[in-house]
């Protein structure tokens, strides 16, 4: 390990870390924004549920690196444009999250739905205030999985020149220099751990009843 290399390159490492975080997290947010309405539709019209599951399964089996490369040919972006990574990982996050969203909404018991209607919740307020909160534990389990997966997937993009911390791996390999690789590994694992903890924390804040239930 060459500690002086780390000191001299702190700024560069910080930029790669921030870029890595951006490439991994933005797609999760966009993917969730896609998955919520799609999952909701699949629950309202149960005939959509099996084809939705099949589509998300096929999309998820396509390797991320392949998608990074094929996308520019389809949507006309430059091959080295980071937007390809954002779009590709958004597709993955969306494909992965529709199932937890749909399963979560399906887990809402009928008597709960009927009670909500009975005490005067109209349709959309009922979805937002009653059904979605009950679905949250499913959604958050999906979010944790997809965020950790994204953080490690972004690195592969370094093979085509855009990979955030992954560039430390290719750089270290090409110069036969271990320090950047170790730094990249440590930061990547730390990023995954921190992101996971943050999501758990948000879940705790959003679902206070889960804790109340456990302690009683």
């Amino acid at each position: 390990m060459r500690w002086d290399w780390i000191q001299n390159n702190l700024e560069n490492i910080g930029e790669l870390l921030a870029f890595h975080l951006y490439l991994a997290v933005v797609p999760v947010v966009l993917g969730l924004a896609l998955a919520l309405p799609i999952g909701f539709l699949a629950v309202r019209w149960p005939r959509l549920y099996p084809p939705m599951l099949a589509t998300s399964g096929v999309l998820f089996s396509i390797p991320s690196l392949a998608l990074f490369i094929i996308l520019p040919g389809i949507i006309g972006t430059q091959i080295l444009d980071p937007i390809n990574i954002v779009i590709a990982l958004t597709i993955y996050a969306g494909a992965l999250l529709v199932r937890p969203v749909a399963d979560g909404l399906r887990s809402v018991p009928d008597h709960v739905r009927q009670s909500a209607t009975a005490i005067g919740y109209e349709r959309w307020r009922q979805v937002l205030k009653v059904e979605l909160p009950i679905a949250l534990p499913f959604v958050f389990a999906g979010l944790r999985f997809v965020t950790v997966a994204n953080i490690s997937m972004v690195s592969v993009g370094a093979l085509i020149g855009i990979g955030g911390l992954g560039e430390l791996f290719t750089d270290g390999f090409q110069r036969n220099f271990v320090t950047p690789i170790v730094v990249g590994m440590v930061l990547s694992v730390a990023l995954a751990l921190i992101a996971d903890s943050v999501i758990v924390l948000i879940q705790r804040v959003l679902t206070p009843w889960a804790r109340a239930g456990r302690s009683s």
């Binding site: 990979g163 290719t170 990547s188 694992v189």
Partner: peptide
């Protein structure tokens, strides 16, 4: 699972 394969 959080280990990046390219780094390993």
């Amino acid at each position: 699972r959080s280990f990046p394969s390219l780094g390993v």
